[in-house]
Design a protein around this nucleic acid. Sequence first.
DNA 1: TACAATGTTTTAAG
DNA 2: CCTTAAAACATTGT
Length: 269
Amino acid sequence: MPELAEVEFYRRVWAVGLGDVVTSIDLHPQARVFRGTEPDSLRPLAGSTFSSALAHGKQLLFGFQGAGWLGVHLGMSGALSIAPPEHLADRHDHLVLRTGTQSLVFRDPRMFGRVRFDLGSEPPEWWTSQPAQVLSQAFNRKRFAQFLERRQGTPLKALLLDQSLFPGIGNWMADEILWRARLHPAKLPNQLSKCETSRLWRITREVARDALRVIAPDWGEAPDDWLFNHRWKAGGICPRPHCRCPLARAELRGRTSCWCPQCQDLASS
DNA sequence: TACAATGTTTTAAG
DNA sequence: CCTTAAAACATTGT
């Protein structure tokens, strides 16, 4: 489920525990979410103070004073929540951090998500070496144009999903971006005019900003003039005021895309 | 029942 | 080393 704004929402959920001391942890050692990580390596968390909560694209990093860094990726079905101190981990609650007053719960039924842990006082290398955030200053028009030039043969939709270029963009955001930019998901970067490339850059950032504003504080509902509320609906139509054309859906590179055949013409430019 | 779900990694080929 | 494409991963809900 989670993309940029949903991940930020979950960061804030756990952040209510900042400053608390972790008294104990519960985990499912055999769960796939610990692949690449020795579950026992999380032991130092017990007794440490929860001191920072960061999000970068779809990655989460939680700092624990005197212990280290807990990395969390929510995959397709992951979620973070707060529960009472006595909360019993159910089948899908793979990690629970208990403080005196509450439990921080990581849940992931499909287990495409991942948990890792690194010792040390500085954030781990995998965190600090991440690509520039879409809303950062470094993510400028020139850099964006370079991405498109380098990946000329990749359809725009697939390109936007590349986390090494656009951290945090996921399936619904990519569809929303292309719909607002009036560009067909299967269009190739080298078919874009300079003007369209600039527009796509601007709207990529606009959607990221809007998503964070609407969703991150309290998982607010998307407005009806976004594509979001229409894209999975049976018989969904384009929410653009003078369009109202039935939306199209097709699989592209293993993910379902939704677009408006009227507004997002493959041939036009 | 069968298919699809807001994601990444691996593997392979060019 | 770079780009591109497809399959695999695991579970649930329609």
